[in-house]
């Protein structure tokens, strides 16, 4: 488990990370969202042992990570602007990482490179942005670490490749309990891949929750009521977080257990009624509103 406790980091007096406490459990895909400047990259760089926290502690499997090769052996960091060795090819990169990460799986790396159709002996500097990201991800996956920190890594990957990466992650999670930590400013990029999401804002964590847990606690209903009296009767018993109306069609975001909500609305016999899945964005809107923030201003 990666654990950050009351972590503070300043750059030239500017507070980049402000008393952040977060736990990243093993075997999940952890999404870290936040606007530019929210502190995602700084937090990841601290978890990777690149930066030293000014205050607080960061541990990987209970060992402090900074200047601790034993702890760092379990972490692989892909920065938002990854570096590739001068004139290096994918094979050179594998050689270099192979010298550093004892568990680097060269065979699997070569297989995956082949699977994704990436040339092994061409200079990486000639690759497209997406190809470079794929190389980074494969290097990270094959390094054999427990944790893979990806900073804006999915930015620039096409949908097909995202699916491919997702399946690679899924396999690694299943087979050896890999824990990818994905930081992004774009919630939509994380939506279909994360199990747990932490929201960073102005250097602090606004919320950190399990996605499934969030999904089961909040729902979207579209319905058309016969009259206002019926509507009032239905709404009275529900914890409505958000209400939207187009003509007679009302869209409600409601907190609570799905079955209970459905039976309560159905019992009122509205003209039309349907339960819809919530997007991650909608879940966040409601969650941050509870915390007193306007999520649209935070992230969209």
């Amino acid at each position: 488990m990666i654990k950050a406790e009351n972590v503070v980091k300043r750059f030239d007096g500017l507070l980049a990370v402000d008393r952040v406490s977060v736990e990243i459990k093993e075997g999940i895909v952890f999404g870290m969202v936040g606007t530019n400047g929210a502190g995602k990259s700084t937090l990841l760089r601290m978890i990777a042992g690149v930066l030293k926290a000014d205050e607080g502690t960061i541990t990987v499997d209970e060992a402090p990570v900074f200047e601790n090769p034993v702890a760092k052996k379990e972490v692989f960091y892909i920065s938002d602007d990854a570096y590739y060795l001068n004139n290096g090819t994918p094979v050179d990169m594998a050689d270099y990482y192979g010298a550093v990460y004892e568990k680097f799986n060269r065979k699997r790396y070569l297989e995956l490179m082949d699977q994704l159709g990436l040339p092994l002996s061409r200079k990486i500097s000639t690759f497209s942005k997406g190809m470079k990201k794929q190389v980074s991800i494969l290097l990270g996956v094959c390094a054999g670490t427990k944790y893979l920190l990806c900073d804006e890594t999915f930015d620039g990957l096409d949908p097909v490749m995202r699916q491919a990466v997702k399946s690679i992650f899924a396999k690694e999670i299943t087979e050896r309990g890999l824990t990818p930590v994905l930081a992004s400013h774009n919630l939509r990029e994380l939506e279909d891949i994360c199990d747990h999401v932490g929201l960073l804002h102005k250097g602090g964590v606004l919320l950190s929750k399990d996605l499934e847990e969030m999904r089961t606690g909040i729902h979207k209903i579209q319905c058309v009521f016969a009259d206002e009296e019926q509507e009032a009767r239905v709404l009275m018993g529900l914890d409505v977080v958000n209400k939207d109306q187009r003509g007679r069609l009302k869209t409600l975001t409601v907190r609570g257990v799905q079955e209970e909500i459905a039976s309560r609305v159905a019992a009122a016999e509205p003209v039309f009624f349907e339960m819809l899945p919530l997007t991650l964005e909608e879940i966040f809107i409601s969650e941050t509103e509870v915390a007193g923030y306007d999520f649209k201003k935070l992230i969209l």
Binding site: K72, S79, A82
Partner: peptide, 16 residues
Amino acid sequence: FSKKKVDFFHSLPVKR
């Protein structure tokens, strides 16, 4: 002198 190189080398499990 380069942030991305520093991120690369200092994230490796190697002591300074």
